[in-house]
Amino acid sequence: MSGTNRYHRQTLFEPIGETGQDRLMESHVLIVGAGALGSGSAEALVRAGIGKLTLIDRDYVEESNLQRQQLFSEQDAYEKLPKAIGAKNRLNDINSMVEVEAIIADAGADLLSELAPAIDLIIDATDNFDIRMLVNDISQKFEVPWIYGACVASYGMTFTIIPGQTPCLQCLQGYLPASGATCDSVGVIQPVVQHVVSYQVTEAMKLLTGNRAQISGKLIAFDLWKNEHMEMEIEKLKKPDCSSCSENRIYAHLSYGNQMKTTVMCGRDTVQIRPQHGIANLSKVAENLRSNKNLQLSWNPYLLSIQDENFRIVLFKDGRALIHGTMDEMEAKNVYYRYMG
């Protein structure tokens, strides 16, 4: 494909034009999370001809993702392909001119700090506020805008955070759910994912093509099922003593220790364990466990899956493990130590 005609309809759109397209093609966007929102944003930006896309995700594809996570196929779920890899494969098929970097990892402070200096914009496609607070600190510290987005059931929400201009997520902390309280069991429908993605990607296009004046500046929320649409000017909630964006900033979320961390994954009956020391030798672990006839082992180049009577443990190369079958962090640690020593 020559590529000369590829973006014709987009460059015809006057606010973007050839100049905007050139800017898009020089931009580097980071998407944190490659689930429902991440799949949608990634596909839209890659089709639009973004220069480079970096995707971070810690999970792998499962059957229950396919209803709304548009980049993945049945084969990806069958192979338990890491989402970052499944997404990259599909994105490369869609537009081979875009450089896609896939990172299979938990988006921690170190990784984000390493990436941030080269990034023009961060799109939030995470599923919890712990990571969003980290993204928010990174955004303020490296002066990179980020676009919050979230959805559950038929309700979605988005807000564009521009350092030095808008309130940041830390300013809004008193209005956010307590840590871990956002796990839901009410499901989600695919159109609301697309609706949030539409807002996020359009805001991204405005920012990246030099159309900052068009940025909405408002907190936008909607319930597609209840036919509700809300927009709010929240400038007044910017906190003069905010710990992330004021002169007294301390970036509290970046200094959170490096110890072993356990996280209960939203609505999944799963605990993630991130050990202090990264990197696991998957073939060595498999070798050690092979003699145990009570275990079923399966693997691909990125992860090892261990099934015992009660739990399924999925071990990634970066040392993380997902313990399926429990939401109890202590129990998950016990299972982890049973097999990983």
Binding site: D127, A150, V152, P177, T182, D184, L219, M230, M232, C266
Partner: peptide
């Protein structure tokens, strides 16, 4: 009145 609540899913 407009009343919105933050959600975490994505």
């Amino acid at each position: 009145l407009e009343i919105v609540h933050f959600v975490g899913g994505g």
